[in-house]
């Protein structure tokens, strides 16, 4: 009888608290429920490489987009590229800030190579890649020199136009690229670039070992005066044309005006 009475009291006292507590706990549990997504791939951001466009300066502008179906936003995003396909997120990784536009400009590409570009993004569940866009002949829009010269000719400043009969194969030494062009009567001009070849302007230097962006042009009587702009165009992969317009050259106290337009293969 005592046991029955005790249990009856428990029932009366506890019922209210139990029901209330249980309802609160159930409510909390139900609110915390995050149903699993049907497609497991929906947890990870879906990335698209929208475009890869060669710019006038020879760089490539990449644009990506992200579609996220999970509750975890993309924390990291960026691009990667290489001359091999497939490539990995570690190949020339170009991270882009988590917020803001999903774009990047890639420069310093070789006109002679085929590049494969991908976008990637990562959230708390993992990372994923986009589609691949490949580009070859990545070169800048041609730059127009301010003078019009006959192809493969040179004027050493004496007013006599000579034709280049032979252009040597460029050689590379300590990141500098050199080649020599020889006229039909044996006069030669040596060109030494201080960096890789691409469509752009270079500045003449008096240093036989020019820096990046400079060129050393020399004849038997010495080099061109420093500070003149020369124009290099990549005509096609491996084929370049160098134009020098009205470049002063001082020799024995006299200043000569040097002009040259020369095509070479590298």
């Amino acid at each position: 009888m005592v046991l029955g009475f005790a249990i009856h009291l428990i029932n009366l006292t506890m019922k209210k608290y139990l029901v209330f507590t249980y309802i609160i706990l159930l409510f909390v549990c139900l609110c915390s429920c995050r149903k699993a997504l049907k497609d497991v791939n929906d947890y990870i951001p879906k990335v698209t490489l929208v475009s890869a466009i060669i710019q006038d300066n020879g760089s490539v502008l990449l644009t990506g987009s992200i579609e996220n179906k999970s509750d975890s936003p993309a924390e990291y995003k960026g691009f990667c590229y290489d001359t091999k396909n497939p490539n990995s997120i570690l190949d020339n990784q170009v991270p882009v800030g988590a917020g803001g536009a999903f774009t990047a400009e890639i420069g310093g590409l070789n006109v002679d190579s085929v590049y494969y570009f991908k976008a990637w993004a990562a959230n708390s569940y993992g990372y994923s890649y986009s589609n691949v866009i490949s580009l070859d002949s990545v070169m800048a829009a041609p730059i127009v020199p301010p003078c019009s010269l006959t192809p493969n000719t040179v004027d050493f400043g004496d007013g006599i136009i000579k034709t280049y009969a032979f252009v040597s194969q460029p050689t590379t030494s300590y990141e500098q690229i050199s080649y020599t062009a020889t006229t039909t009567n044996g006069n030669s001009v040596n060109f030494t670039f201080g960096s890789s070849l691409t469509t752009r302007t270079y500045i003449t230097s008096s240093d036989p070992s020019p820096e990046s962006g400079e060129i050393f042009v020399s004849t038997v009587s010495g080099g061109l005066n420093p500070g003149t702009t020369v124009y290099l165009n990549a005509l096609s992969p491996g084929v370049y044309e160098l134009t020098i317009c009205n470049a002063p050259k001082t020799y024995s106290g006299y200043t000569f005006i040097f002009n040259s337009r020369c095509t070479f293969s590298y």
């Binding site: 497991v40 990870i44 990291y76 960026g78 990995s88 997120i89 570690l90 990784q93 991270p95 990637w120 990562a122 993992g126 990372y127 994923s128």
Partner: peptide
Amino acid sequence: PRMDEFPVYGVLNGTTVLP
């Protein structure tokens, strides 16, 4: 498991993502 391999990653120096 729902996938044979889950694409996890690590971050080096706050910017480089390692697959």
